[in-house]
């Protein structure tokens, strides 16, 4: 981007300076627009209910307290249970880890075949698979809940893992395929002549250069599955609900006194894992978003 819009000495006039000030002001205002909701959440979660009733959204807590966090974690009522979001958080962890690992690994092999071992009709098959990235999941909810029941994994974490693997595969396959097409075919040809077969080429030549796309796929799948609500609400039982469902139940509970500080603490707890992933690996996160969204 260097060289665009060269700053000329003569142009460093008051006009240009004012222009710069305007640009930065807008950017800062926009940053505030994005940050304030999070700030509000954080402040609210640190207040007492009394504080909330007398203060306002952006006022600082008169006394900082972690009570709401404690309550959100271990004793808040989500629907009929009053054990906080702890258990649901763990449900989500138990669901995300295997689902991400399995869907990513299968996706890697699929991507390898669809890019480097094309066969007659493989492109067509791939585009049909790709369409799976776009279907509104409402169209599969009913049959899936029937099927999970038949497979005896309805209302369980296993069921959710299964569903997330199945509907994550189109995405992971797409990621890996689009990455592997950038590896020249000639490398595969050379390896074939060198005597390597299907798995050896994958293992020795493709996998060692796949780290970036693994990161992208894992991050994408982790955020998607962690943040999922629809499958969670449709297919989980009361003891297998993921955190998103629990949070929704919490904020939508109409019994008793609304404790907004607890709601906000729970919301931050629910958002924290993906937020951390984003902050640690933002670059890969973005790559997944654009790859997953634009091309598929």
């Amino acid at each position: 981007m260097r060289g665009r819009e060269p700053v000329m000495v003569g142009e460093r006039s008051t006009g240009a300076v004012i222009g710069r000030i305007i640009v930065y002001s807008i950017l800062i205002v926009a940053a505030l627009y994005f940050l304030i909701p999070f700030f509000v959440m954080a402040m609210t979660s640190l207040k007492t209910m009394n504080d909330i009733r007398t203060g306002n959204l952006i006022s600082f807590p008169r006394e900082f307290t972690l009570d709401a966090w404690g309550k959100a974690w271990s004793s808040a009522c989500t629907g009929i249970n009053c054990e906080g979001v702890k258990g649901y958080f763990l449900n989500s962890v138990q669901m995300v880890i295997p689902a991400v690992i399995i869907s990513t690994l299968i996706g890697a092999v699929n991507g390898y075949v669809f890019s480097k071992w094309r066969f007659k009709g493989s492109e067509t098959i791939f585009s049909f698979l790709l369409l799976g990235c776009f279907i509104p999941f409402q169209i599969i909810l009913l049959p899936m809940s029937q099927t999970l029941g038949v497979l005896r994994i309805g209302q369980s974490i296993f069921g959710l893992i299964f569903v997330h693997i199945v509907y994550g595969l189109p995405f992971t396959s797409l990621f890996f395929r689009n990455f592997y097409v950038t590896i020249p075919d000639e490398i595969i040809k050379a390896a074939k002549i060198d005597g390597a077969g299907f798995f050896k080429i994958f293992w020795k030549i493709i996998l060692p250069v796949s780290l970036p796309i693994f990161v992208v796929a894992i991050i994408w799948q982790t955020t998607q599955i962690w943040n999922d609500f629809l499958f969670g609400v449709a297919f989980s039982g009361s003891d297998s609900q993921p955190i998103t469902v629990a949070l929704n139940n919490l904020v939508n509970t109409s019994t008793g006194v609304k404790e907004y500080n607890v709601d906000m603490a729970a919301a931050i707890i629910a958002g924290l894992p993906t937020l951390i992933v984003y902050i640690v690996a933002g670059k890969y996160f973005l790559r997944g978003l654009t790859a997953g969204a634009v091309k598929g």
Partner: peptide, 23 residues
């Protein structure tokens, strides 16, 4: 700036919704 503008994408709609419901 970019990091700030994009972080909401990392949150689930449920978290976003909870926040805005309160706001």
């Amino acid at each position: 700036f970019r990091t700030i503008y994009l972080y909401p994408m990392a949150l689930s709609f449920i978290v976003t919704g909870a926040a805005w419901r309160w706001i």
